[in-house]
């Protein structure tokens, strides 16, 4: 939740500050303002995609039924291992709730940088509240946290009071009268598939299907069917691989002139000396 920038965790307040700086940039106007604006737009889209990603990651790994035999017998780790993660998780909440004070402390260090000296950073953070200059916007982290907590608590209490006589039974998940099996759950690939299809121009997904038939003449009864879905890493495809090719090509060229023959190297030194001599004399 923190990483998807959801309130009241630290990610939200970081993102909030990030948005604010981009918005104040957009107020500058002109092409510079437009650049800030577009980056804010990308931030808005990516933050929501991050949420989608972590629903997928958490939902597929921890929720619903297990897919493998090993996972079925998974046990909770010992208290020492849990506390390590627990402290970090708690910190995201603490940093969220006290976002104002903590970013105030951080601001002091960045004020030491000469490029930021005299900026309005300090006015942004007063105790526990974040507020940008000229009253552009403000948010209070503890108020958000306590408000959410209070609202949820009241709802839970009222609903408990109204429905205290109702029975709750546990039963199987309904799935159209079939037996529900592990294979029916959505997988991580399936979950992200629609997003990938929407951005297929950018992500270039690949798909390969192969079918093996019982009888190749009569293609009605498939024996085995497999589908292979892949997606290239965009950065790898358009950045790293061309970069690698260029560097390989350069080293191939270097190999031609650098073939290990000592006489040749002496020739290079001699040629360089002569060229340098010509340059200096002229």
């Amino acid at each position: 939740m923190a990483i998807s920038a959801l309130p009241p965790f630290n990610g939200f307040f970081s993102e909030w500050l990030c948005f604010q700086s981009l918005f104040s940039g957009a107020n500058l106007g002109g092409s510079l303002g437009l650049t800030f604006l577009l980056s804010a737009g990308f931030l808005a889209f990516t933050s929501a995609l991050a949420a989608a990603c972590f629903v997928k990651a958490f939902g597929v790994s921890f929720l619903a039924r297990t897919r493998s035999h090993e996972a079925e017998h998974a046990k909770e780790a010992g208290p020492a291992m849990l506390s390590g993660m627990g402290i970090l998780a708690l910190l995201t909440l603490v940093f969220g709730v006290f976002a104002g004070s903590i970013s105030g402390l951080l601001a002091k260090t960045s004020l030491g940088l000469s490029s930021l000296a005299g900026s309005e950073l300090e006015s942004v953070f007063n105790f526990n509240n974040l507020q940008t200059p000229q009253n552009f916007s403000a948010v209070s982290a503890p108020a958000v946290f306590s408000g959410l907590l209070l609202a949820i608590g009241v709802v839970a209490a009222v609903i408990y009071f109204i429905t205290r006589k109702n029975k709750v039974t546990a039963n199987r998940t309904w799935d159209c009268g079939h037996d529900i099996r592990q294979g029916m759950e959505i997988t991580a690939t399936g979950f992200a598939r629609s997003i990938i299809v929407i951005f297929r121009g950018l992500l270039k997904p690949t798909k390969q299907t192969s079918i093996e038939y019982h009888d190749d003449e009569m293609r009605y009864f498939p024996k085995r069917q497999s589908i292979d879905v892949g997606r290239d890493d965009v950065y790898q495809h358009f950045f790293y691989i061309p970069l690698k090719r260029v560097s390989y090509w350069l080293s191939e060229m270097a190999k031609k002139i650098q073939n290990g023959n000592v006489n040749l190297y002496i020739l290079y030194i001699f040629a360089t000396l002569i060229i340098l001599l010509l340059i200096t004399v002229r």
């Binding site: 808005a44 889209f45 933050s47 929501a48 995609l49 949420a51 989608a52 629903v55 997928k56 939902g59 597929v60 929720l63 619903a64 039924r65 998940t173 309904w174 799935d175 529900i180 592990q182 029916m184 759950e185 959505i186 399936g190 979950f191 992200a192 598939r193 629609s194 997003i195 929407i198």
Partner: peptide, 23 residues
């Protein structure tokens, strides 16, 4: 996603896709 039914998973997938674009 939690209940492990095929419907729920696909609903969540679509919802998150739409939400990430609508935001």
């Amino acid at each position: 996603l939690d209940i492990g039914s095929a419907f729920g998973g696909f609903g969540s997938s679509r919802e998150m896709t739409l939400a990430s674009l609508a935001e």
